[in-house]
Every structure is written in structure tokens, then in C-alpha cells.
């Protein structure tokens, strides 16, 4: 091999190393989150299949009676003259994910004027979506959301959310002091524009806790991040609820 050929080979290899190291980093980075996306999708499909199976079988057509009889109403009557008092709901107190050192107080939040979920300004606080289920409710998705960082307060603990592993413990201290134990089922990074909000904010269906923040590429001030980090946890076995 001539010195010239050898030098060319080394040059090519070196350039490949420069490019390859960045490619490797990007690939590894993207692998870190969403490791069990396929698993989650499979589980969801299974749930959908089940729901389809439970649909009532088509009934043979029955001619409606000309004058259907009605049963006497015996209970459940309410005094409509009593104007209901506004429902006061106390938010849960704290959420902790010990495996990544997250332990944050919770405040209640609603909907921002732009229609998105309202989040506490301080990334050291987590907002509970007050128009949805509470942690510990029998059904629906209780949503906790927080900023990953802020111009005023810097990077917050939720920046460690992508490192959470399936199976990790999530604890929520309810308003009454009860400790609710959940176990992480999935960690997903979802393109914000494709965020399945109807699933994340589901008012019914099996109960779950959804912890959500931002992640992925930063698009610039005012635009925020490209993706959401979504951690879904289900009640731990043997725990209440």
C-alpha cells in the first residue's frame, strides 16, 4: 500500500468517526425514551380489542310496542329548588418518583387562555388538572403536569422524567394525607402536535396517573419544546386504589 493510499484511508476513517460519533449520539438519545412504546401500543390495542368484544351482540329486531309501559320512578328524586354549592376539590399534596429524585409539591391548575393545560410558572411545582380525575379516583386519567425549565427559575426536577424506567414507583400524597402508590407502565416522548389529549385527559376508563412535561428539541423562546414526555403509571398491585 502506498503512503498516499494509506493516508487517504485514514482520512476517510477519520471523517467517518467525526460524523459517526454524532449519529451514534442522536440514535442513542432517541432510544433512551420511548423504549417500551411498542409495548404500550400493543397493550392499548389489546384493551381496544377487549372493549370491542364487550360490545353487545346485535339484537334481533323487535317491533316497538305501540305504547311502551313505563315503570314507576321510586327513588333518586331531587329538590331542584336547592341551588347546588360549587364543588370544592382539594388538590393532592405531593408527587414523588424516588428512582430519579423527583419529590415535588402539587397545586391545582386548569386551562390556560390558549386552551392548553395551565402549568405552574415554577418548574419546582407540579400542577394537577382540576377538571379531570383525582389521583386515587376509581376511573380516568389523573394528570400532573409541570414545566421542565423556566427563564426565571432555571431547569427543574422534571428534566429527569425521561430517565424514569417502567416499573418505577410513583407516590402521590392525597389531600387527606393518604399515600397512593403507582407503578410506571410507560415512558413516551410524543411529538407535541400529535399528543393524544383525549387519551391523556380521559375522564373514564381504567384509572391511571399521567405525569407530563416537555422534552426533545428546543424550538426557541415562545415556541418551547418539540415534544412532550409522558409517564403513565397505574395503581401498584395490592395498593389502594
Amino acid at each position: 500500500m502506498s503512503p498516499r493510499t494509506r493516508a487517504t484511508a485514514i482520512l476517510v476513517a477519520s471523517v467517518a468517526l467525526v460524523l459517526g460519533s454524532f449519529v451514534a449520539w442522536v440514535m442513542l438519545r432517541d432510544q433512551g425514551v420511548g423504549h417500551d412504546l411498542a409495548q404500550v401500543t400493543a397493550a392499548r390495542t389489546a384493551v381496544e380489542d377487549r372493549s370491542q368484544r364487550s360490545e353487545p351482540r346485535p339484537q334481533p329486531p323487535v317491533a316497538p310496542p305501540a305504547e311502551p309501559a313505563v315503570a314507576t320512578i321510586t327513588g333518586g328524586l331531587v329538590d331542584a329548588t336547592v341551588i347546588p354549592a360549587p364543588a370544592a376539590v382539594t388538590p393532592p399534596q405531593r408527587v414523588s418518583i424516588p428512582s430519579v429524585g423527583i419529590d415535588l409539591p402539587i397545586i391545582d391548575t386548569g386551562v390556560a387562555p390558549d386552551g392548553q393545560m395551565e402549568l405552574p410558572d415554577d418548574p419546582g411545582l407540579v400542577g394537577w388538572y382540576r377538571f379531570g380525575p383525582l389521583p386515587g379516583d376509581p376511573t380516568g386519567s389523573a394528570v400532573l403536569g409541570g414545566h421542565v425549565d423556566s427563564i426565571e427559575y432555571g431547569v427543574g426536577p422534571l428534566s429527569r422524567l425521561p430517565s424514569v424506567q417502567p416499573g418505577a414507583d410513583v407516590m402521590v400524597t392525597a389531600a387527606d394525607g393518604r399515600l397512593l402508590r403507582y407503578q410506571v407502565r410507560s415512558v413516551e416522548r410524543i411529538y407535541k402536535a400529535a399528543l393524544p389529549v383525549d387519551r391523556i385527559f380521559a375522564p373514564d376508563g381504567p384509572h391511571q396517573l399521567t405525569v407530563i412535561t416537555c422534552g426533545g428539541r428546543f424550538l426557541g423562546t415562545g415556541l418551547g419544546y418539540e415534544d412532550n414526555i409522558v409517564v403513565v403509571a397505574v395503581p401498584a398491585q395490592g395498593a389502594t386504589p
Binding site: 449520539w25 386552551g115 402549568l119 425549565d149 422534552g215
Partner: peptide, 29 residues
């Protein structure tokens, strides 16, 4: 449901390039 979840504003929590990438790239250079 709300239309989305905003989640962050400063960009300081954006993924940073780890040291080994620079080391490998430096070796290549």
C-alpha cells in the same frame, strides 16, 4: 380535553451533547 401541555420555556433543559461525542469527534479530526 385541553389542546396540549406547554411544558418548558427556556431551553436550558434541552438535550446537551455529552463529552464522549466531542472526544470521539476530536480523535477523528
Amino acid at each position: 380535553a385541553p389542546s396540549g401541555v406547554p411544558g418548558g420555556e427556556s431551553g436550558s433543559a434541552a438535550a446537551t451533547v455529552p463529552g464522549w461525542v466531542f472526544a470521539a469527534a476530536g480523535l477523528g479530526l
